[in-house]
Design a protein around this nucleic acid. Sequence first.
DNA 1: ACCGTTCCCGGAACCGTTCCCGATAACGCA
DNA 2: TGCGTTATCGGGAACGGTTCCGGGAACGGT
Lengths: 339, 339
Amino acid sequence: MKKVSITIKEIARQLDVSKSTVSRALRDSSEISEETKKRVINLAEKLNYYPNPIAISLLKNRTQTIGVIVPDIANRFYSSAIGGVEDIAYSRGYHTMIYQSHELLERERSASRHIASRRVDGLVVAISSQSTNIDHFVSLQEQGIPVVFFDRVSDAMQTHKVRVDDYKGAFEATEHLIKRGCKRIAHIAGPKPVSITRFRLEGYKDALRKHNIDFQDEWVLHSEITQQGGTERTYQLMALRERPDAIFGASDRITMGIHWALRQLGYRMPDDVAVIGFCDLAMSSLLDPPVSSVTQPSFEMGQQATSLLLDLIESKNTPVEFETRVLQSNLVINKSSMR
Amino acid sequence: MKKVSITIKEIARQLDVSKSTVSRALRDSSEISEETKKRVINLAEKLNYYPNPIAISLLKNRTQTIGVIVPDIANRFYSSAIGGVEDIAYSRGYHTMIYQSHELLERERSASRHIASRRVDGLVVAISSQSTNIDHFVSLQEQGIPVVFFDRVSDAMQTHKVRVDDYKGAFEATEHLIKRGCKRIAHIAGPKPVSITRFRLEGYKDALRKHNIDFQDEWVLHSEITQQGGTERTYQLMALRERPDAIFGASDRITMGIHWALRQLGYRMPDDVAVIGFCDLAMSSLLDPPVSSVTQPSFEMGQQATSLLLDLIESKNTPVEFETRVLQSNLVINKSSMR
DNA sequence: ACCGTTCCCGGAACCGTTCCCGATAACGCA
DNA sequence: TGCGTTATCGGGAACGGTTCCGGGAACGGT
């Protein structure tokens, strides 16, 4: 039942003009008479003509499409950020192609190759935790495909970046715990190679230092960004001879794991252990007890990154210098840390 | 810094052969001598040549890409289903283009237009709750672009469908509540136009009927698929002169809203009100009390739908008849309904 | 020695669109 | 009348591949 899609040539044939004329008429060129224009446009409408974007892409080497690579779309933070990307892209006439890296370097490379060969116009990306090497992104940039980082950024590449002030968020969260009287504050951090892991760890350490609390090596554990990782590290922490009286989780998944493990082990929050995390708000308020958290403007991050990207795409020359936008996180106090 | 991408013509020039020869050599045609093949392939590798998929698309009218439309990727059920879609698509050499309808007919239409003009090879879709009219999908099918429904299906179109046995899931959930001694069982259903809403409602009604419990009109409320919707409907239910002693929620979002509202209002689960829902497992076990739920094989649904779609795409002739696969849901009992 | 095959390869058309370069006719002006 | 200008359009190349058609050379068989 394949209906042949109708082309500019078909319109030209029916109107007995050349295809150049049709093309020009449809693009409202000044060198076509009003009457011819009208005839062409009318017929095009009648035949339900749509230009073939593939042909245009072949000619112009542009696709009006941007790519997004995130580790995992099931993660609320990223799905919300994608919402922000789509919002801006859609309003500026671009479509969005979404890729998941599943935190794997190989999938990220595969997506990059696809982007390059498909002539996607630009890329917004949160780097996979496994990607210590980002040559594939550099290569895209060298091919004239702009890349903008968000959330997980890298110093190894010169481009626009949008991230949240992780240092400050972690600092405030830790300081909050200290002010509520916690003395032995543990931190379950994310994977080591990720930039935000370092920023958050620094914030945590500096808050301790400011309040003259000794930093203890065994109270900082690294974990995958999964609930299971958070759970296992919590077991590990609570098994210590000197137990922490507070745990600060570096991501929403990890914090869910902490919460689950503590309940499993029979600890009360916040009395036995105070908990705070980088967390998705909608979810954390449903837990019992509701979890205090550092919330991040994920939707806005997607918007800003996309806006920067589209500016890069649409300006012919590379900008004099690249910008790093740092958005503020928000400290939301709930019962889990209120003692 | 735009590096020109290297083409078949460039290879032909450097090797002083025609571009037909290069094309054939790269496709390992039998009518090219082994020696020439080797020369071409070596140079192609050295120059880092990749064929331009856009040119091939223009020629073949195929893109090796499938589209997915879901209401909302932030919804765990759909993001997990997309995982299943990607899994199959990736392994069979296709890429995935993800669209969100945001439950809006207009966005669904826009995505369909994009799919048609971009020559996407096929579509996997969960219909938006607003879409009573699905002509845009019929039109795609008529243009030779196969469409497969999953989760939200429609009788108005003849095609492959993959759904879960909503009737049975709802029946079992309701019967479970009855067996735990609940007498006044309310149901917060999804939007009326959606097919699964009807199936679940029927299952609920039939379970009541089987156990000779009167069906009460005011105990069935329709809601959007949002937490807020669930919350508001719960207020409404608990405000009734004759309060329900159990609530069955039709989706995960709604059930989260129920849970939140009951806690807010000071009711204990399951003692005052038993709760069960169609729910995401990872999340429901974290709530307090953990919520009993009917879980759905979302990943597998994505896989099966995609597998059916790719079969349609790759077989030239339309199949004699279309298939509707009904997957089984799973009843997971937790504390919220154990009384 | 002649003819039919087979092996390799080049030329050109084609996919749908844009755009450069001309070409024609009408028109204005000296 | 002649010439430059303008308005309007057509022809064809180009984008990067695939594929049909055909053609030359080598080769084998009679």
